[in-house]
Design a protein around this nucleic acid. Structure first.
Lengths: 195, 195
DNA sequence: GTCTATAAAGTGATAGAC
DNA sequence: GTCTATCACTTTATAGAC
């Protein structure tokens, strides 16, 4: 029998983060109330405060977790030998990882402004660390004469924006599979860096 | 002498749109109250409703105006002869126009979800019309054998995402001028399409 | 661990005075 | 054209019962 009151901390915590992520991504952080999140989880609003001190901390937790997982996943990725193989690995990794977490990606790019200065700086730092991973690949390729890039910093921003943009239009079951999209984007990136 | 009450409709209307645009872009549509907008303009909240029926209509007005101006400006742009010249014109136009209206660009990509279905469809249609302008250039170049593009639809999305991304990091007075940035991006786009 | 109830403040929008 | 005052409602967050 279902009971209205009981101990579910091990399931409620993850459910709150899951529902908050989806609601924040769909409607925006400011547009979503704690009552809406609670309703989606199946608890009353007051219960949320057992898992987060306030609404902003909930957002920060989602963003921090996402960035940590992104960096950890890239660190664990096979990246082959040489700048060319590393760039291809990065392109395929970025598209694949971001497509599987479109909500979190969207939040990371859009809702940073709802964080306080210290939390903002933390997420921004992690993002920059990720961008630096790509820039180092580009620099290495440039120095090795494998790539022909007018400005590695701009190329970094251009490539990341281009790849991240996939999440705004890609739909599972559409004209192209993830693998086909990754192939096509890799072709464009490869050419763009003069390889 | 300043007076607290009087007729200023010709100045108040534009001021409301200007302040609303900046506030919406900075904090998000849902996070900004009508009272905040009124305070920024220098009137009381009630006065705003002489210029807009409600908050959503104010957002729609900003987005619609931006898209109309974007399409009109591109239509008026010199674009040279042939796909190559047209693509270069598009790249330089897009970067230049978007950099001069970073707030509106940000709104157009982020706050569509706050529109009702009919207003959403209208803005989305204008955006697609703009994207089609680029896609037609790519198709023409592909057919003429000037470009080598695996998929013109994906190339369209990739290029627009890449160019629009400039608004997220460009700062006036930084390391590179607008013209230098446009030169570098044009170099990358040109290579990416195999030209 | 979750509930109900509530405090204190803010929200969009309107009515009527000037 | 603007202001003041206000309605009806929602917001985040907390206190205390169970």
């Amino acid at each position: 029998m279902a009971r209205k009151t009981g101990s579910h901390s091990q399931i409620t915590g993850p459910k709150i983060r899951e529902q908050a992520l989806q609601l924040f991504a769909s409607h925006g952080f400011a547009a979503v109330s704690m009552r809406q999140i609670a309703a989606a989880v199946g608890v009353q609003a007051g219960a949320l405060y057992l898992y987060t001190p306030d609404k902003e901390a909930l957002l920060f937790d989602l963003l921090k977790t996402h960035m940590d997982e992104l960096l950890a996943a890239w660190a664990a990725e096979e990246r082959g030998a040489g700048p060319m193989a590393a760039l291809e690995a990065f392109v395929r990794f970025h598209i694949g990882f971001n497509l599987s977490r479109a909500d979190a990606v969207f939040l990371s790019y859009m809702e940073l402004r709802n964080l306080g200065p210290e939390n903002f700086a933390m997420i921004e730092g992690l993002r920059r660390a990720y961008e630096t991973e790509l820039e180092e690949i580009l620099k290495a390729g440039q120095e090795a004469g494998v790539f022909l890039i007018p400005d590695t910093k701009l190329a970094t921003m251009a490539i990341i924006a281009m790849l991240t943009g996939v999440t705004t239009w890609f739909r599972e079951g559409g004209r192209l599979s993830r693998a086909m999209v990754a192939d096509i984007y890799w072709d464009m990136v490869r050419k763009a860096v003069g390889a």
